[in-house]
């Protein structure tokens, strides 16, 4: 009996492995998309700053200054 239930449990867990991996990870995909888009469109400074090689064209726009006139 114990042996059978152990096999059943093992099979169930194996099925769970497969199920988890089949579904498309929508949240992870969004996160990945955001990261790539930010880099391609250079939306966030600093994030790609650690890149090796070309460090020419990081646009240094002035960060938000407290006393900035409108």
């Amino acid at each position: 009996m114990t042996k059978k239930s152990c096999i059943a449990l093992a099979a169930l867990l194996l099925a769970a492995c497969v199920t988890i991996n089949i579904y498309f990870p929508a949240a992870a995909a969004e996160k990945a998309a955001d990261k790539i888009i930010d880099e391609v469109w250079q939306l966030k400074d600093g994030e790609a700053a650690g890149g090796k090689g070309d460090t020419g064209s990081t646009d240094d726009r002035p960060a938000t200054k407290p006393g900035a006139t409108k």
């Binding site: 093992a10 194996l14 492995c17 996160k31």
Partner: peptide, 15 residues
Amino acid sequence: CLMSVAGMVSAAADL
């Protein structure tokens, strides 16, 4: 089995 489940869950967290 449990370990492999854990591995896949963590793999699914990031692409």
